[in-house]
């Protein structure tokens, strides 16, 4: 029960307090304008190079934006607390670490999910991309799973935040890697082999692939394997991120770097 409270209450308040992303002045430009223009940018490059259909880019970029809050928000949670000197306070409480950090990720996942959905709908409308009605429910599922797996990566990023100061920089770099590697705009087959191999192990890759098939009319059963893979990768990153967090926490306690803001 206590764990549950830390999970929900702690998660929500820290999310609010730490970066106030709930103000429309940040939400609208960061989560509505930016994803939309990223879709348009790559869709137009796609039209120039005659590489793929508009739908390819709408799905890829919209789903990538599920990852953005997950990377930035998780990293900021740690970085922000360090900035406000509350990190040692939080870490000295006996609260269980897993509900503490995972709890912080729930609003983040929800955020990523909404952003992704908005980008998908408006991007499709603007570019005249048709997505079958029957695909909507499965797409929602895939977006949620993708947001979850990206949060795993966000957790790793947050753990890094215990060591390096600039989580905003690491978040941006991770975003860039996902952009290039995960088949967001470049089909995996067009990437060098070593890159597509790495992509197989990253969150987002399978989610995007599944979503593209769904939007193309495939049933949920056909993409079950891809969704499962995304979910599995997500779990691995969550567990890995959690382990890394504990490791970094112990490490930084030993080296006394927690206070350093």
């Amino acid at each position: 029960m206590t764990s549950l409270r830390i999970f929900f209450v702690g998660g929500l308040t820290s999310y609010r307090a730490l970066f106030n992303w709930l103000t429309p002045w940040i939400l609208i430009p960061s989560f509505l304008i930016a994803p939309l223009f990223q879709i348009l940018l790559f869709a137009y490059i796609g039209r120039t190079t005659h590489l793929e259909s508009d739908r390819f880019y709408v799905i890829g970029n919209a789903l990538q934006y599920a990852a953005v809050p997950c990377l930035f928000a998780m990293g900021n949670t740690i970085g922000g607390e360090r900035f406000q000197h509350t990190l040692p306070l939080v870490l000295t409480t006996p609260a269980g670490r897993l509900p503490l950090f995972i709890g912080r990720s729930v609003p983040v996942i929800a955020n990523g999910f909404v952003v992704s959905g908005f980008a998908l709908v408006t991007g499709s409308a603007l570019l005249g991309v048709h997505v079958p009605i029957s695909a909507v429910a499965p797409l929602v599922l895939v977006a949620a799973v993708t947001a979850f797996s990206c949060t795993g990566l966000g957790l790793c990023n947050a753990a890094l935040g215990l060591r390096v100061r600039e989580t905003a920089v690491t978040s941006n770099i991770l975003f860039g890697f996902l952009l290039v590697f995960c088949g967001v705009n470049v089909p995996l087959s067009s990437l060098p082999a070593w890159m597509s191999t790495i992509a197989e192990g990253l969150p987002l890759t399978h989610g995007i692939a599944a979503a593209r098939q769904l939007a193309g009319g495939a049933g949920l059963g056909k993409v079950a394997g891809l969704v499962g893979a995304e979910l599995l990768i997500g779990c691995i990153y969550v567990v890995g991120g959690y382990a890394l967090l504990r490791l970094m926490e112990i490490e930084s306690r030993r080296r006394g770097t927690l206070e350093i803001a």
């Binding site: 790559f42 490059i45 796609g46 190079t49 590489l51 920089v169 941006n172 770099i173 975003f175 860039g176 890697f177 952009l179 290039v180 967001v184 705009n185 470049v186 067009s190 990437l191």
Partner: peptide
């Protein structure tokens, strides 16, 4: 970051134009 950030986009664009 100022240098890396545009490189991610440039790389994506290069892959797309390369085809």
């Amino acid at each position: 970051l100022g240098i890396l950030w545009p490189l991610f986009f440039a790389t994506t664009a290069f892959f797309m134009f390369r085809t």
